[in-house]
C-alpha cells in the first residue's frame, strides 16, 4: 500500500475529536498513533531524502515549499515529496513526529534536518550536499 494510502487508513483509527488541521500540540490528545508513527518511520527508511511539503514538486503551493524543491533540485539528489495538504492526519502527525509546527520539513536518512530557512543555510554552506551524499552511500 502506498504511504498516503497507509496514512489515510490510519486516520480512521486515530484519536477522535482532534483538531488535526490546527495541529495544536498544546491542546488535547495526540494524532500520532503508534500505527502512524510506524508508517512514517518505514517510509523514512525506504527513502533517503524526503520533503514533506505543500503541493508537489511540479506545483508547489507555498513559497517556502517551493524554495526547498528548488534547493533539492540544485543539489541533484533523488527525493520523495509528500503533499501534506492532501492528508490532515499526516499534517498534524508530522508536526508531532518532528516537533516542528510548520512545513516544509526535510528528512535526510531518516533524520529531521529542518525547514526552509535551515535548508537555505545548509545549502549555502555546502553542508546539504554533504549530508545528501553521505545518505546516498549509507
Amino acid at each position: 500500500m502506498s504511504f498516503m494510502g497507509k496514512t489515510q487508513t490510519v486516520r480512521r483509527t486515530a484519536h477522535s475529536g482532534c483538531r488535526a488541521s490546527a495541529g495544536a500540540s498544546s491542546g488535547g490528545g495526540s494524532v500520532l498513533t503508534p500505527e502512524l508513527r510506524t508508517a512514517v518511520e518505514e517510509f523514512l527508511q525506504e527513502h533517503k531524502v524526503v520533503l514533506f511539503m505543500k503541493g508537489n514538486r511540479q506545483f508547489p503551493q507555498c513559497g517556502f515549499s517551493n524554495t526547498c524543491v528548488q534547493i533539492l533540485n540544485m543539489v541533484q539528489v533523488p527525493y520523495e515529496t509528500v503533499n501534506i495538504l492532501e492528508n490532515e492526519t499526516l499534517r498534524a502527525g508530522m508536526k508531532e513526529y518532528s516537533s516542528w509546527p510548520t512545513f516544509p520539513q526535510i528528512y535526510i536518512d531518516g533524520e529531521f534536518i529542518g525547514g526552509c530557512d535551515i535548508a537555505i543555510e545548509l545549502y549555502q554552506s555546502g553542508e546539504l550536499k554533504e549530508l545528501v551524499e553521505k545518505a546516498l552511500v549509507s
Partner: peptide, 15 residues
C-alpha cells in the same frame, strides 16, 4: 545547533 534553536522558538510560541 540550528534545529534546536528553531525548536526553542517554536516551543515558546505554541499558543
Amino acid at each position: 545547533n540550528v534545529v534546536k534553536r528553531h525548536r526553542a522558538v517554536y516551543q515558546l510560541l505554541q499558543e
